[in-house]
């Protein structure tokens, strides 16, 4: 299974349409197959991000805020979307692998010390 996480620094990015970086992780049987790889985007665009998700054949997208039309588009393309996630991407990925992640998950530690790390 391939998972795409929209990230900002060490955290899941607040908005799907305003991100500059994504992380793609491949896993099998709740284990990572390889070190997740990061892709820096040339520009922030929800449409281009949807294209990337399809091009990479991802099965799951984990993000923060996403507009309904992009959400529905990905769902139509059989991509599972877990949105409104707030937290450090490492922990989020672990939860996703363990099938514990749900939309709206808010993890502790998203204060300026952590989030500010990317500033």
């Amino acid at each position: 299974m391939k998972i795409l996480l929209t990230i900002r620094g060490d955290f899941i990015a607040p908005r799907f349409d305003r991100i500059a970086e994504v992380m793609i992780a491949s896993c099998y049987d709740r284990q990572l197959l390889e070190e997740p790889r990061s892709i820096l985007l040339a520009e922030s665009s929800a449409e281009k991000l949807c294209d990337l998700a399809l091009k990479e054949n991802v099965d799951m997208v984990i993000c923060g805020a996403i507009e309904e039309q992009h959400y529905q588009y990905l769902r139509w393309k059989k991509v599972r979307v877990i949105d409104s996630v707030i937290g450090p991407h490492e922990r989020v990925l672990e939860m996703a692998l363990g099938e514990e992640l749900a939309p709206g998950t808010l993890l502790a530690g998203v204060d300026s010390v952590g989030a500010g790390g990317c500033l």
Partner: peptide, 23 residues
Amino acid sequence: EARGVYGDYILRTDLGSNDQLSR
């Protein structure tokens, strides 16, 4: 539930990246 969370993650505006404006 949102108290103590970095404001940008709750408000989810598009006021530039990394809260430049707030800073």
